[in-house]
Design a protein around this nucleic acid. Structure first.
Lengths: 139, 139
DNA sequence: ATTTAGTCTATATATTTGATAGGTTTTGTA
DNA sequence: TACAAAACCTATCAAATATATAGACTAAAT
């Protein structure tokens, strides 16, 4: 399951994308919209900023805004950044690979094969779908 | 990611299936084979027994053995039993459904749609593939 | 009777997740 | 230029979950 962190991030990004015309948007506004703790969301938005998805402005009239085009924000990227691996096993993770300690030989492991297949199908969707698809779906 | 518990369970089931001709197999033997803590594996096998996958025999010459046919043990069932939901969001889980607290309206939620798609593709594989497929893959 | 090996329940330890606290910096504006 | 607003930053805490361990109990073989 996705962590709340990631879910909140995706909702926040969606909100920012939908209200792009408003310019900078307060953390407050987003946290109220979804009933998320202000401080928790703060941390999340900061991370998204450091990762280059968001820009921000301090002081009065400040807030956050989307830097990237919604179509250039694949869901897989957001999920990986905040939750880590998408794969079900470390030994089939493309971005967070680690061998399984208990595994004798990855090359012949049956689970490895199946989970690689699951990973491929999941990624086919999550890297194809972008923030824009979410926004469009909701409008 | 799958928990160690689930990974261990799947390995243990595979082992039991491969060595079915031996009859009852010691926890000891399996835990050594994969370098798993004896006691931890004990708990896992007990769960699998209570769920009706394994049988056991106490005392000397005892151990665990597979009750079901390997082909009748879908990976999805094992994963769900030990790890819970396969879906990435509670609101698209078929077996552990819960609404997302922060969500205004599931019917129009864009994430919901995408994650339902991911769930479908994942389940297509995990409920199609059984223990037997894992065993065959490794032989 | 003794040994072997699973059963059961409880507890301990570690890790991760979700949330909070409070001071710092920047910026608009009165 | 002082003040207020709002993001920035770091640290910490609390709760939940995952992993592992302990030890007494029961059943079976010999």
């Amino acid at each position: 399951m996705l962590s709340k962190k990631t879910k909140y991030a995706l909702h926040a990004l969606t909100y920012l994308s939908k209200h792009k015309e408003k310019g900078a948007i307060l953390i407050q506004e987003i946290s109220q919209e979804y009933g998320i703790s202000h401080k928790f969301l703060e941390n999340i938005l900061l991370e998204l900023k450091k990762a280059g998805f968001l820009g921000s402005k301090k002081g009065k009239g400040g807030g956050y805004y989307l830097i990237k085009e919604a179509k250039d924000v694949p869901l897989s990227t957001v999920i990986r950044m905040l939750d880590g691996p998408i794969a079900l096993l470390p030994c089939v993770s493309l971005n967070y690979y680690e061998p399984c300690e208990e595994c004798h030989d990855q090359a012949t492991c049956g689970l490895n094969k199946v989970m690689a297949q699951v990973r491929d199908e999941t990624l086919k969707i999550l890297s194809m779908k972008s923030l824009q698809d979410i926004v469009q779906e909701e409008w």
